[in-house]
Design a protein around this nucleic acid. Structure first.
Lengths: 217, 217, 217, 217
DNA sequence: GATGAATGAGCCTTCATTCAT
DNA sequence: GATGAATGAAGGCTCATTCAT
């Protein structure tokens, strides 16, 4: 009897867990498939095959193709945000250290693995992604930009740069975006090491008193 | 009489021209539609309606949807290449002037109008575009990168910079790519003027002896 | 002035002649194309290309695809009929000679060239051909069968065969049809000579007093 | 309990069977529709309506129209082959009995029902059918011809005929083909009985010592 | 929960037909 | 007469979605 009661209790729990596990599994399969085939060429069957399940299951867990994509995009966005927040949390309060943390966050394979970066490109290429992203992450994005600008301003002020901190933050972000683009589309293999060197070279150009071409000064 | 003879000569030519004109018209309609709807949501009927013709005509001039897209991509690539080559041709031999020319080329509305930049993003998001682009423009792209690197190297050598010219060229290019991304996807309207300021700020950071935050020194 | 008057007179005539010539040219192109591609795979453009004219011209001379096919079928039927009638006209009144004439008529390359026989097969395979043929040639066909039966009956009566002449005519016709099928579809090349031998072997089996395995006795 | 276990076993089997049953059902619908409309006029929707299913299902089971046709042709060919083999299997070793078996096999409604024969004609009229058939059944066809020739040779040798057995087999086969053509296209209704009489009349003409005009002697 | 046959809307594509030149 | 661009109806095919098992 205990067993059956336990079963009663455990089963729903395990089902719930299993349900969430399945969703993650399908989202990961979507990311992988999206990177391989692009948005237009991708079918729910592709995702199902990649995940090793029947295609009917995809619609069971995500009510439509649209929802699957939206949730995949939001998964990537949440992952990106959690990543830089984790890096920033360990960086203290000095602006140079904070900037370095954000720089290193963008180079964490968790978010900048080619498959992820190509996946972002697939979403950006699709006009329907943009309103979804804006609605859920527009505010966070603004906050990120404001924070980055504020860090750069503190840095330029403290460092005695003539440079406009706000504009510097824009250049810094553009470099990050450009490097991600290289990761995704470079014809020749583009290593994480090259990406890091490029970003530090940019940081050193912008903030020579705090960065060298290879890292924090 | 001369006129009629001329007409005799012109007619076949105008027919031929008309065919080419139609193709251009359809490619432009494709660019516009692609920017508005994205790759996956776009149908040949959309393109035809945008161009103000029947859908059958699209397949008459481009044998398939795939070919229409390939030719549109190659049209954009050719236009981009022609644009920077035209800018460079007027720049003389001084590396700073050449770099400035390439910078301004990227800001020419002919190539960086939002509709064009979003269109590029739509192509990058689609995995099938990449081999097509590589096959036709991979070599040109390599040449562009090499040329940019060479200009930066001459600039750093002549300017007495400690900076690695090759790495500087990478940062320079990353800034350009990042700025284009802003043009395409910035939530807030992102003016050409902001783009220019950001790029010159980057140029000034990299090559302070030759560029200020607003232009060539 | 004479010339221009002559031109006035000749042109309409030549146009008319040319019109009929064009129609024949297009029908022949249809026969050739039909044999090569079959009914379903054939387009008016194929016919036009084979004839070396623009596809618009096909519709100009035949108002629709359907009419082109109907007229091509009737052309073949008329050609077939004219052919055996010509053979029969030279055969005198003796039934054996008449039967031999009909046998040889079926082996005339004008009607039994593979391209023609395959073309018939293309028409028979298409259900819409049958009512057209019936309407125009059904009566002629009945007449042909009746005539063949009558010839066979005279032959069997005169020859002292026990054989039913009417049934013999059926077998005779079946052999002809079967041989044509071999001409059209034999995997191995099937020569006219083999066809002739087979038909005479059949004739000899049916009417041994009048035919040998190689010809009239 | 046994029953439920049995059910457990049967269910997967029935699912598999159901798929095969569906395919057969669709092939039969194709045969029927093909005979009614011909190859060119036939659409997948026609087949689906005839089978009482949605058109999507046709492509689900056969990946394309082309494959559906190929498989239908091969179905007919396999059915034809199985039929004469079954007849031959009951015929013993005497050549006359074997030939009679093959003759009767061709008159079995399973293979010579008008709908089937017209269907064959539809395939022969379509050039794409021929390579498919050759590839799959060319060898069998050769074997059939060789076997028929061998039977006729044994028959002529044993029967003391002057007739060339090989040539006789050709005539025999031509009669069969011609009779089928009558079944398919005769303007007047052509009964199986007439077909039988014609074929036995042919057999009697070729092999009078073994066949009469109505059957085996 | 999971499967996969079945459905049907929507799109690409073909092609007969028209028509301005 | 002749051409070939243009049209639009029709059909093959894909695939998201549903649902019986």
């Amino acid at each position: 009897m205990n067993l059956s009661v336990q079963a009663e209790k455990v089963l729903p729990a395990s089902r719930k867990a299993s349900k969430e596990v399945r969703r993650q599994q399908l989202i990961e399969a979507t990311i992988e498939t999206l990177a391989r085939k692009g948005y237009a060429q991708l079918t729910l069957t592709d995702v199902a095959v990649t995940a090793g399940v029947s295609h009917g299951l995809v619609n069971f867990h995500f009510q439509s193709k649209e929802k699957l994509f939206a949730e995949t995009l939001l998964h990537l966005a949440a992952e990106y945000q959690a990543n830089w927040q984790a890096y920033l949390a360990t960086a203290g309060t000095a602006p140079a250290l904070q900037l370095d943390a954000l720089l290193r966050a963008d180079l964490d394979p968790k978010v900048c693995a080619p498959v992820k970066v190509i996946c972002w490109a697939a979403f950006w290429g699709e006009s329907q992604s943009r309103p979804i992203y804006q609605q859920e992450y527009g505010a966070n994005d603004e906050a990120y930009s404001a924070m980055l600008a504020e860090i750069c301003e503190r840095l330029t002020a403290a460092g005695g740069y003539a440079l406009d901190g706000h504009m510097a933050s824009r250049v810094f972000r553009a470099i990050g975006d450009g490097v991600w683009q290289d990761i995704a589309f470079s014809a020749r293999p583009y290593s994480l090491d090259e990406a890091r060197k490029t970003m530090y070279a940019g940081a050193a150009a912008l903030f020579p008193k705090h960065f060298t071409a290879t890292g924090l000064r």
